[in-house]
């Protein structure tokens, strides 16, 4: 909510950490995605306890993280959106996944409980395009037999601020709705055809809770904490799945990481019967040929620790740790690509 404040705090944290960094070579700084901020903070605290090395992560948003790692003012950046291999090569950066999360549609319809409504990707697209206007639209009734959907207008809620959540959500809609792809497209913020915009996950959650007949999208943690009515969504295999850590993990393991150069893969609409279709990955960005190899090594050591010992902490915060095969692939990538 306090983006500008967070911004200046980031700058301050970065500056402070740079000064501190000269004294302790193992302390490193990162910035970027606010989506991973809670888990990176949690990992950093336990990592500092274990090793004495401090990881200072300033958040600030993926855009800020990308800009700062390109300007080499931080040791690693974090982004909700993978950069293309070309962009990475131009800046001399390497990229790898940090953790998995998911975006969840939430509704506020009287009498409808969490997980009751089933929506297909195309229906989500049509709702957000303003084509399906009422909850009792026959199109929705087809896959919601047994639930009485009211004769009420659908109030669409989206994110007003740019975010990785929006990127993954619009990326998914673009994959499942050709009309969405043509008219709106994907991005950290887009021109929403209908509805209102709330600021941050908290803002969207507040709007959805306030407005009768509304639908919005938030990260899983917000849906669970606010006890909101999330929906089931049909995945690429045609099955309706409930959003939870198991279905996020399924999407992450079914996704085709092997053929993704520099891990450039958005795992929305992933294959697999039990995959949640709007699963998201956060990515770390580091220099392939760092000026200060010790610092980059410290970053890699930290993520190694996070992958091997940080799984429980991640699940407690509603994230999904990376599947073992992916971790092995990342470690091979470090060996091959990062010069230490």
């Amino acid at each position: 909510m306090f983006h500008s404040i967070r911004h200046s705090l980031t700058a301050f944290a970065v500056a402070a950490a740079l000064f501190a960094g000269s004294a302790h070579a193992v302390d490193v700084t990162g910035a970027g995605s606010t989506f991973v901020q809670p888990i990176v903070a949690k990992w950093s605290a336990s990592y500092a306890e274990k090793t004495g090395s401090h990881i200072n992560y300033g958040g600030g948003g993926s855009g800020a993280g990308i800009a700062q790692i390109k300007a080499a003012t931080i040791d690693f950046g974090a982004s909700d959106k993978p950069l293309s291999p070309e962009e990475l090569a131009a800046a001399g950066l390497g990229q790898f996944p940090i953790v998995i999360g998911g975006v969840v549609p939430v509704v506020n319809i009287e009498g409808v409980k969490a997980g009751e409504i089933k929506l297909t990707g195309a229906q989500l697209g049509d709702i957000y395009l303003g084509k399906i206007k009422k909850w009792n639209d026959p199109a929705l009734a087809a896959n919601n037999a047994g639930i009485k959907l009211p004769d009420a207008a659908i109030q669409v809620v989206s994110r007003s601020d740019g975010s990785g959540t929006t990127f993954n959500y619009t990326n998914y809609l673009s994959k499942v709705s050709p009309e969405w792809k043509a008219k709106v497209g994907e991005g950290t913020s887009v021109q929403w055809p209908v509805g209102v915009g709330g600021k941050g996950n908290a803002g969207v959650a507040a709007y959805v809770q306030q407005i009768n007949g509304s639908i919005g999208y938030v990260e899983l943690a917000y849906a669970l904490q606010n006890k909101m009515a999330y929906t089931q969504v049909q995945n690429a295999a045609g099955k309706f799945v409930t959003p939870n850590l198991a279905s996020f993990a399924a999407a992450a393991s079914h996704a085709d990481w092997k053929s993704a150069k520099d891990f450039q893969l958005v795992i929305t609409n992933a294959p697999g019967d039990d995959s949640w279709p709007i699963t998201a990955t956060a990515f770390a960005l580091i220099y392939k040929t760092p000026k200060d190899a010790a610092r980059s090594k410290a970053v890699i050591d930290y993520f190694k620790y996070a992958y091997t010992e940080g799984g429980k902490a991640a699940e407690a915060l509603d994230y999904v740790p990376l599947p073992a095969a992916l971790v092995a692939q990342i470690e091979a990538y470090w060996k091959a690509e990062v010069k230490l």
């Binding site: 500008s4 800020a64 990308i66 601020d161 913020s189 915009g197 600021k199």
Partner: peptide, 12 residues
Amino acid sequence: AATIANEFAEAD
């Protein structure tokens, strides 16, 4: 003012 506050951080 609201537009700037909302969108500046992720203006990519």
